[in-house]
């Protein structure tokens, strides 16, 4: 447990150190490059802000009205079947379609349970190891007019399931 934390805490500093030293050996003006990249990063967040406002309002209204809780209660049997908290099921399903909508639900879980709770940890790992299966498939396949996608969906769902199982195992270990 403590080891996981130590390793996690080392990854970002070592990663940054490596990139910085690599850049310096290649004689890159590292600070200039950093400033340029940081500007691009700010633009990304600027473009993300409207989406976040929209989706946080959507999930916020759903939560405060009690509807989100009602929906989660409806899904309790599924949750029990897969041995996951009921709030994780809508998160998982929405993530297949839309990354930003899933972010809305993730933040709602943080808001309600806290990011360090079991469910918060589980949701964090789950969101880190899964992708928007249906969204990716439609964008990529449609860009080349392929309509018969064969076993792509099965593979995508299988790896998502593997991610879900691993997230439950790891979050349980971390508690």
């Amino acid at each position: 447990m403590k080891l996981i934390m130590e390793v996690s805490n080392l990854i970002i500093p070592l990663f940054i150190l490596y990139i910085l030293l690599f850049g310096m050996t290649k004689k890159v003006k590292v600070y200039d490059a950093f400033i340029k990249g940081a500007k691009d990063g700010l633009l990304i967040v600027y473009n993300l802000a409207p989406t976040l406002i929209g989706l946080l309002v959507g999930t916020g209204v759903l939560r405060e009205s009690g509807a989100l809780n009602g929906l989660a209660n409806l899904l309790t049997p599924f949750g029990e079947f897969f041995k996951v908290p009921k709030e994780i099921i809508p998160l998982m399903v929405v993530k297949l379609f839309s990354g930003s909508a899933a972010t809305g639900l993730l933040l709602d879980i943080y808001h309600t349970f806290g990011p360090d709770s079991y469910i918060g940890t589980l949701a964090s790992i789950l969101m880190s190891c899964t992708e928007t299966v249906l969204y990716c498939m439609s964008v990529y396949f449609m860009s080349v007019n392929v309509s018969k996608t064969r076993w792509t969906l099965a593979g995508g769902l299988l790896s998502t399931l593997a991610g879900l199982i691993m997230s439950v195992v790891l979050a349980t270990v971390m508690q």
């Binding site: 996690s8 808001h111 806290g114 360090d116 790896s159």
Partner: peptide, 28 residues
Amino acid sequence: YRMQYGSANPAEIIAPAIVATLASTFVA
């Protein structure tokens, strides 16, 4: 996101996230 919602250690999930990502990719 974790940082914003007051996590005591936001980076704590990096190692488990890497393990879970590798596992799902391995299955794929």
